[in-house]
Amino acid sequence: MSRIIVVTSGKGGVGKTTTTSNLGAALAKHNRSVALVDADFGLRNLDLLLGLEERVVYTAIDVLAGECRLAQALVKDKRIKGLVLLPAAQNRNKESVQPEQMKKIATALAKGYDYILIDCPAGIELGFRNAISAAEEALIVTTPEVAAVRDADRVIGLLEAEGVNKISLIVNRVKPLMVEENKMMSVEDVLELLGVPLIGVVPDDEKVIVATNRGEPLVLGEYESVPAQAYSNIARRLEGEKVPFLDLMANQGNIFSRLRRMFGG
């Protein structure tokens, strides 16, 4: 059974595309076949983050217009077996795509791939409705900031209204030092408000930005890094493994505040 999962957030710039590319690569490393769908027609950049920009020939719009077959439009990632990208068109009028059409594409992909990960645009308008139309599950990405959490909450409500009830949360760009100093919401604060299960915590790390600029998902990099580990862990949890959460706060504070955190005090 393949899984169609939308990666969404409401707010822009919180790490949806970064998450989609890294999770895709991490799942492929686990020998899963993965199709990434760029549903951000306005600001497509999943191809950029994957370093596949030069190889894009056709896009989802061409498929819908009947100008090419679905398989032709899929760009294979040569670095890793089983990972493909369905790019979004940038030039076409994004209003020209409808939820029903996106659903058709995702359902067709589901016949050949274990995971369909859909990179959702920011906002809650048509682009969002397109991206979630086929989704059976959702990964909500948020940063520990009030505005991002507020938007995540809104999006969760909309997903629930659409009948997407399998929703998990990724808290991205956590800065342990700031949390320790009470200058940033903690993961617990975010969870307590949103009330959906946590599937991953990713630290704020400049390696993420470096990898983004290089067009290479961190999880495919040579060196192990904490954020790469965090993304791999999310992939494993998606696969049903029980993986303990990284203790990003490990180096912060004294033994008492760490214990307090462990016991949720």
Binding site: I124, R150, D151, D153, R154, I156, G157, L158, E160, G195
Partner: peptide, 8 residues
């Protein structure tokens, strides 16, 4: 019987 979320 549900949480009223942001925007609602």
């Amino acid at each position: 019987q549900s949480t009223v979320r942001s925007g609602v």
